Simulated assay, not measured.
Amino acid sequence: MLIQAFQKYKELLNDIKSSIHQTEGFRVWWLGQSGFLIQYLGKHLLFDPYLSDSLTKKYANTDKPHTRISELVIDPSELDMIDVVTSSHNHTDHLDAETLLPIFEKNPTITMVIPEANRKFVAERLKCDKDFLVCLNDNEHIEIYPFKLYGVPAAHNTLERDENGKLKYMGFVAEFGQYKVYHSGDTLRYDGMVDILKPYNVDIAFLPINGNKPERKVAGNLNFEEAARLGKEIEAKLVIPHHYHLFEFNTEDPENFIVKADDYGTPYRVLRLGERIEII
């Protein structure tokens, strides 16, 4: 039995569109894995969407099956309101052609933001012009009204750079109006992480909780305790966990995160698939 979405497909789409003209605050929907949709002043920023079964098909009948354990919440071709989309790194659950190409088709003026080091790879995977991609490194930012995106390092599992010193794995801080949110991408904790993130004073930190277990044979992330502690240390006003409940072999029980967040006094919200939270 798949984990059921809180809302999906037409109900989710209607929920997104119902508040598109709202001028107060901003809204967030969790779309599964590391995918989050931000709505602010009628504009939409989509972080790292994975809305297909491409990995399940790719790894079927192998020694590393990617067995889906939760429902898809929406067909990417239904997302016809996206202004900005990100890919924090080149792993398919963050850079999925079966998700992104339908979104590009429905949003011809979309801007895609990626790490500079990944430009060639992304252009080849998505069969797009390299100049279509807007690229960042750490200590850089780009403005795509009403969003300003800052590049921050991510360690998956290391702070890996290309031959020109450009990061291959990144997180993003998005600033819009009076608000700031941090999307971690995939990351472990690294030296100086708190010093980099704390000055942003983020309203929401989206942090992975699935951990780093070598037996999974994939690069890892913060575990539930590390995410709860990091959220407290950077003084995030709210932590929303991600990167769980997608694949059977690489997940975590969010209840474990809740226990540690309560222990640390970290403010948090655990979203159900397709659920909305509103920040005013």
Rank of each mutant, 00 (worst) to 15 (best):
P146Q: 10
I209G: 03
I110W: 07
T86V: 06
G32E: 01
M1W: 05
S52K: 12
R161A: 02
K198G: 05
L46N: 07
L271D: 00
T99E: 11
P214V: 11
I82R: 05
S87Y: 02
H243C: 02
A219S: 14
T109F: 11
H245Y: 12
D131E: 14
T109H: 13
T23N: 13
I38A: 07
S34A: 15
L222W: 05
R276C: 10
H66A: 13
T62I: 14
F121W: 14
K260V: 00
G35E: 01
G231L: 07
N90I: 15
V259D: 08
D75F: 05
R189N: 11
D96K: 04
L46V: 04
N107Y: 03
Q4H: 13
Y182F: 15
R189T: 06
N212I: 03
E11N: 12
K57H: 11
K120N: 08
I74C: 09
K148N: 02
T109S: 14
E143F: 05
H66S: 07
T23D: 13
I240T: 01
F121R: 13
H156I: 04
L72P: 00
K198P: 06
I114Y: 01
P254S: 10
Y145K: 14
V73K: 03
H243F: 02
K180A: 08
F206T: 09
L72K: 11
P241Y: 06
S52I: 12
R216V: 11
I196L: 08
L197H: 09
D63L: 15
L133W: 06
K106I: 00
N157S: 09
K198I: 12
W30L: 00
S77P: 04
L159P: 00
